[in-house]
Deep mutational scan, measured.
Amino acid sequence: QVASGNGDRDPLPPGWEIKIDPQTGWPFFVDHNSRTTTWNDPRVPSEGP
């Protein structure tokens, strides 16, 4: 069983990049398509309500 969020081996969607926040050391994700950033890994399906 693979733990949720453990998709580091999967490629990011086109136009996405991983960067590290220098203050926290946490990775965040840059979507160059929409010029936005998020803490949520785009490779992990979001949980519904």
Rank of each mutant, 00 (worst) to 15 (best):
S46I: 13
R43S: 05
D10T: 10
V2K: 10
S46M: 12
V44W: 00
G15N: 12
D10K: 06
A3N: 14
R43P: 03
S46N: 12
D10P: 09
D10A: 04
T24W: 09
V30K: 03
V30G: 04
S4R: 08
L12D: 01
K19Q: 02
G48Y: 09
T24E: 09
P22D: 03
V2N: 12
P27K: 15
S46V: 12
P22T: 14
G7W: 13
Q23S: 08
W39K: 02
W16R: 08
N40C: 11
E17V: 00
E47P: 11
E17K: 06
R35V: 02
G25K: 15
S46E: 08
T24C: 10
Q23C: 07
P49V: 13
P11F: 12
A3R: 07
V2M: 06
I18W: 01
R9H: 06
P14D: 03
F29Q: 03
P14Q: 09
D8S: 10
I18A: 06
S4Q: 15
D21A: 09
G15K: 05
A3P: 05
L12P: 05
D21W: 07
D41A: 02
D8Y: 03
N40D: 10
G7H: 15
W39I: 03
V30A: 04
R35I: 00
F29W: 06
W16A: 05
N6R: 13
N6I: 12
N6T: 15
R35F: 06
D21N: 01
D21G: 05
S46Q: 14
L12M: 11
R35E: 06
W39E: 09
K19F: 02
I18H: 01
D21E: 12
S46Y: 14
P45A: 11
W16C: 02
W16L: 04
P45K: 10
N6S: 13
R9G: 07
D21I: 01
Q23P: 04
H32C: 06
H32K: 00
S46W: 05
V44L: 14
A3G: 06
L12A: 07
V44G: 10
I20A: 11
S4A: 08
G7D: 15
T37D: 02
